[in-house]
Design a binder for these strands. Structure first.
Ligand SMILES: NC(=O)c1ccc[n+]([C@@H]2O[C@H](COP(=O)([O-])OP(=O)(O)OC[C@H]3O[C@@H](n4cnc5c(N)ncnc54)[C@H](O)[C@@H]3O)[C@@H](O)[C@H]2O)c1
Ligand SMILES: NC(=O)c1ccc[n+]([C@@H]2O[C@H](COP(=O)([O-])OP(=O)(O)OC[C@H]3O[C@@H](n4cnc5c(N)ncnc54)[C@H](O)[C@@H]3O)[C@@H](O)[C@H]2O)c1
Lengths: 240, 240
DNA sequence: ATTCAGTTGTGAACGGGATCACAGCGTTAC
DNA sequence: GTAACGCTGTGATCCCGTTCACAACTGAAT
């Protein structure tokens, strides 16, 4: 479950299972690799051309062993003493994560959150771009927001198919989420970022990243209490 | 790391370890319990007063065994045939997740994303409320946005201490995140929701939920490719 | 009263991600 | 040249969340 944290591959009814034919990175690995790359790219220009697992680990909040293990599984080798070549590593990660020809994404639901995300992602790197937005409200369609055109929902299928879009961001109200998601799947979307506070029920061969902010907040609250509160938890429970 | 969904307890340098005095739920358990409750509360008024593990599982995209196991660990019993009492269960979950006296949260960084979140959380349930916002920009402070007063950053310590606030949402630019987070810790915040795309380095007894949207998006893109690609990962990519 | 269908509760097995530990080696210093 | 340091690569291990499987049980039906 994922937003934080939590990643959620959803299959038809009960059991969750992802299966791919070839070598597939695990969900946490993809997350970490994505983070490694971002941190490497954010390195100051005058920093050395190689980096140690320790250093990268510190930048990413992991352990050095973890970093080495990850780089091992993508077959990237470093040199003792010098460490890993930063340029090369960025390239190697890209070769794992990015589609060679780039990938495009759409956003559905141009409300408060949708607009913030549009702004955020249209100023981002080009290998994964938000290229279209959709809304059901005629007030919102037709305009161009943050360089991204807003289409009527009815055009979804055509635009997605025409451009071979595979990734979708869902920021519609909870009540509409399942229905809209179904339409997106039908159009060809296979990877979802779902911000609606409702778990999507989608067919297999589909991946949903649940960005459940409410749940994440409750987690933060729970562990904040657990960590600072120290004691004070009752073990009393109730039943019918 | 979590983002992505993923939960991230960060300790000083390398090793991550959470330790609490008493019985502590695991991170995924807290997420699921939070979700169970939300789904139960969203049940139609005319639905039966009890619910089976199957049904709840379907609503939450998990398995029945999982639900039973979770309810077992919080010591909540159901009856064969009838299932679990919905009212009682909602109460039992609350007794686990919520602070008896309620919990308050602050948000720092009233930008695009911050405003969206303010709007979202001030219309939410009362056991966990956003009670104050902070920004460094004098243009933004002094006003009341969505029922939430925006203070100058300088007031952070006082407000947090005065109201015993333990949870904080971070929506400042990446460059400012670490510094602001440090100030929040100093003021007494122990649970974080970090939307800045930078892993926070915080002392032990602190919990960070990394809401790394970029990473989540790359995960969705990666698995979308992996799943629809059907076989090849390298070149196999079709057009519309 | 008795049977029966279907659900809960839970020990046990499983799987896989995180972590450990160390051998091997490249680099630098002298 | 060579010694020594410290980092990488990786088998092995650990740990914990997930899943299985089934006995116990409840309520309904007859
Ligand atoms: N705002 C936040 O900070 C926040 C935080 C967490 C979760 N969410 C969730 O994200 C979603 C959007 O939140 P928001 O605050 O932007 O709401 P919003 O009401 O501002 O935006 C919703 C948008 O979706 C559009 N819409 C409605 N039905 C649609 C349909 N069937 N097809 C296409 N578009 C449709 C509306 O016209 C509107 O533009 C909600 O599910 C909300 O629960 C929001
Ligand atoms: N907008 C999005 O959809 C989105 C998505 C993912 C992540 N993020 C991240 O969330 C953060 C905020 O994004 P945004 O789009 O709202 O940016 P924004 O520029 O609109 O808002 C940033 C706000 O933080 C305030 N600020 C700056 N420095 C500060 C400081 N030291 N103390 C307190 N406040 C300070 C600014 O005055 C501004 O109001 C960024 O880190 C961004 O990377 C945003």
């Amino acid at each position: 479950m994922s937003p934080s944290g939590m990643g959620v591959p959803l299959v038809e009814t009960a059991p969750r299972r992802r299966q791919a034919s070839v070598r597939l990175l695990s969900e946490p690995q993809v997350s970490r690799l994505s983070l490694y790359r971002r941190q490497l790219q954010a390195l100051p220009l005058d920093s050395p051309p190689t980096i140690h697992s320790h250093t990268l680990a510190a930048l990413c909040g992991t352990s050095a062993a973890h970093v080495r293990r990850d780089l091992m599984t993508i077959g990237f080798a470093g040199s003792p003493v010098r460490g890993y070549d930063v340029e090369q590593l960025i390239g190697a990660i890209g070769r794992q994560l990015d589609a060679p020809e780039g990938q495009r994404a759409v956003l559905v639901g141009v409300g408060q959150l949708g607009r913030a995300l549009l702004n955020y992602f249209t100023t981002r790197r080009p290998h994964l771009r938000l290229v279209a937005a959709f809304d059901i409200d005629p007030e919102k369609t037709g305009r161009v927001i943050h360089g991204c055109r807003v289409w009527p929902l009815a055009e979804l299928g055509e635009v997605v198919r025409e451009q071979g879009i595979t990734v979708g961001v869902l920021t519609v109200p909870a009540e509409a989420a399942q229905e809209v998601a179904d339409r997106m799947v039908e159009a060809g979307i296979a990877g979802f970022l779902n911000f609606a506070p409702v778990p999507l029920r989608l067919p297999a061969r589909t991946f949903v990243e649940e960005m459940d902010i409410t749940t994440s907040m409750e987690r933060a609250a729970y562990f904040a209490r657990a960590l600072v509160g120290g004691g004070r938890r009752k073990d009393e429970q109730r039943a019918g």
